[in-house]
Amino acid sequence: MKKGFIVLILMIIIVSSTSCQVRQNQKPTTYKKSDKASEGLYRIVENINDIIIDVEKAGKLSATFNESTSLIEADILKEKEKKKEEIKKAWEEINSKIKDSHESWNKYEKEIMERGATSEYILKFKNSLNGLTVAVENRENKDIINYGSKALFDFSPFLELYKDEFRGETSRIKYYVYQSYLAGENNELEKAKDLLDMTEEYTAGLRQKIEDDQKKMKIFEKLVLSLQDMKEAINVGNNNLLKIKRDIILQNIKDIEE
């Protein structure tokens, strides 16, 4: 009886010791949390992107305001009223996004400062956003593209405060693409090409951050080719062609960001 009891005790000790050893050898499960800007913060960039796109749409509506294929005067007036309402609605939407951008900035400025953003970068972005706001009020389309793209560029340092965030690079690429387009429109062809060359630094940075994502890398290859296509199109000196090539680049960037 005593012998059996001793054997039982020894078995319990062995099992307990083995269990402890297994637990010690087990490594705790770790989860890598991505360090990216919040969608609320990035909403500022999305608003600015949308403003530039919407302004060009509003410009098209305004350009066709006096055009009509109808021969009946009543239909012409009806068509004009419809376009007038569409133009009004487009600008109301743009103004709403401007207001939302200012409100979002006020909400997230403290977070950016705590992340380490310098007062110099903060002031640059504020000036760009204010310039964009005035341009929208004056309905100056080229100024809106100019200040809008500058706002994207000046916001990018804040996105780069997040180590896994690649949209700082895409925002800078957009800036140079828009500025190249504006230079091309003004027939400053060499300047337009030089501006596109400036994207190389940021496409290289973008590649490093997304190289593990095969889907994004396939789109990235299209992006690089589309940048080269736009540069070649500059020599043609046709604004419509330049805009088509520009929009292909912007769509590729949008696809990468999604």
Rank of each mutant, 00 (worst) to 15 (best):
M1E: 11
M1T: 13
K3E: 09
K3Q: 02
G4Q: 13
F5K: 01
I14A: 11
S19F: 13
Q24R: 15
K27G: 03
T29C: 08
T30Q: 12
Y31H: 00
K32S: 09
S34Y: 10
S34A: 10
S34F: 03
D35M: 03
D35R: 00
Y42C: 07
E46K: 13
E46C: 12
E46M: 14
I48H: 00
N49L: 01
D50V: 09
I51E: 00
I51Q: 07
I51K: 09
D54S: 09
A58R: 08
A58Q: 13
G59M: 05
S62K: 15
A63P: 01
T64E: 08
F65Y: 10
F65R: 06
F65K: 02
N66G: 12
E67L: 11
E67V: 07
S68P: 08
L71Y: 06
E73K: 10
E73H: 07
K78F: 13
E81K: 15
K83A: 13
K84R: 07
E85Q: 15
E85V: 15
I87C: 13
K88N: 11
K88S: 15
W91G: 05
I94L: 10
N95E: 15
S96N: 14
S96Q: 14
S96A: 15
K99W: 07
D100S: 15
H102N: 12
S104W: 12
S104A: 15
W105C: 00
Y108V: 00
E109P: 02
E109S: 12
R115F: 09
G116V: 08
A117D: 06
A117C: 00
S119E: 06
S119F: 05
E120N: 08
E120Y: 10
Y121F: 06
L123G: 03
K126F: 09
V134Q: 09
V134M: 09
V136W: 06
E137D: 14
E140K: 10
N141H: 10
N141P: 02
A151Q: 01
L152A: 00
L152Q: 04
L152K: 08
F155W: 00
F155V: 05
L159C: 08
L159N: 04
K163S: 11
K163H: 07
D164H: 11
E165C: 08
F166P: 12
S171P: 12
S171E: 11
R172V: 09
I173K: 07
Y175R: 05
Y175G: 02
Y176R: 01
V177E: 10
Q179A: 04
Q179C: 01
Q179K: 14
S180Y: 04
L182E: 00
A183H: 02
A183S: 14
G184D: 04
G184P: 03
E185G: 05
N187V: 06
E190I: 01
L195C: 10
L196A: 04
L196T: 05
E201D: 03
Y202W: 15
T203P: 02
K209T: 02
I210R: 05
E211W: 03
D212M: 06
K216Y: 02
M217D: 10
K218D: 00
I219Y: 01
F220E: 00
L225S: 15
L225W: 09
A233I: 14
N235D: 14
G237A: 11
N239F: 08
N239D: 06
L241E: 06
L242M: 05
I244W: 09
D247N: 13
I248Y: 02
I248G: 03
I249Q: 06
I253W: 02
I253R: 06
I253A: 01
I253Y: 00
K254W: 13
I256R: 02
E258K: 08
